[in-house]
Amino acid sequence: QLEGCVKKLKASQHLMGTPPTMTQAMNAIREILSDDTIAPVTVDRIIAEVAGIYGVTSDDIRSMKRSSQISTARKVAAYVIKEMTQLSLQNIGAELGGKNHSTVSFYIDSISEAVATDSGTKETIEDIIKNIKGATS
């Protein structure tokens, strides 16, 4: 979006033959920050939402702790990150405290299976995704 703003200012300069003014720059930036613009989904936002649902902290999800509650939250976070972002398994693992891609793949497969067989898990995941989408629009 910011790159588009710069291109717009350059095009204006080219057409008018004068450097862009501060007012033009502020107007261009205001356009990209309008309420109609959907904020991007971030990993931090996803992890915070999952942490809140499971009663753990974001730091817990990123930690090496292995309690059942934290482990489940970590798996769900990996699944939701994969569903809502374009991150690779390796990058998701890095976001989750340095887990390797095969561990992340296991997390995602585990939650995929739970979503397919357990309506409670499916509803929880759907609620998390709705909450995140609602917070970013």
Score class of each variant (00 low, 15 high):
residue 73 A to T: 08
residue 120 G to R: 12
residue 124 T to N: 03
residue 56 V to P: 06
residue 23 T to K: 13
residue 74 R to T: 07
residue 42 T to N: 10
residue 132 I to H: 00
residue 89 L to F: 15
residue 95 E to L: 00
residue 120 G to Q: 12
residue 17 G to R: 03
residue 53 I to R: 15
residue 39 A to D: 14
residue 133 K to M: 08
residue 72 T to N: 12
residue 18 T to N: 12
residue 124 T to L: 04
residue 129 I to K: 15
residue 126 E to R: 11
residue 47 I to R: 05
residue 54 Y to H: 15
residue 25 A to V: 06
residue 104 V to Q: 03
residue 97 G to D: 00
residue 117 T to S: 15
residue 53 I to D: 14
residue 66 R to S: 15
residue 89 L to A: 06
residue 78 A to E: 07
residue 128 I to Q: 06
residue 134 G to C: 07
residue 60 D to A: 09
residue 71 S to F: 09
residue 98 G to E: 10
residue 88 S to W: 00
residue 8 K to V: 04
residue 31 E to F: 02
residue 130 K to V: 06
residue 130 K to E: 11
residue 12 S to P: 01
residue 50 V to G: 06
residue 123 E to H: 13
residue 60 D to V: 06
residue 12 S to K: 08
residue 83 E to G: 12
residue 83 E to K: 15
residue 61 I to D: 00
residue 81 I to R: 01
residue 47 I to L: 13
residue 113 E to I: 07
residue 72 T to R: 15
residue 104 V to R: 01
residue 28 A to D: 00
residue 72 T to I: 07
residue 80 V to H: 02
residue 36 D to L: 05
residue 111 I to N: 03
residue 8 K to N: 09
residue 77 A to N: 03
residue 32 I to V: 12
residue 131 N to H: 11
residue 122 K to D: 12
residue 54 Y to S: 09
residue 77 A to M: 01
residue 41 V to H: 03
residue 133 K to C: 04
residue 5 C to I: 10
residue 44 D to C: 01
residue 15 L to Y: 02
residue 102 S to W: 08
residue 34 S to Q: 01
residue 82 K to R: 15
residue 49 E to Q: 14
residue 98 G to W: 10
residue 23 T to A: 13
residue 79 Y to V: 03
residue 104 V to H: 02
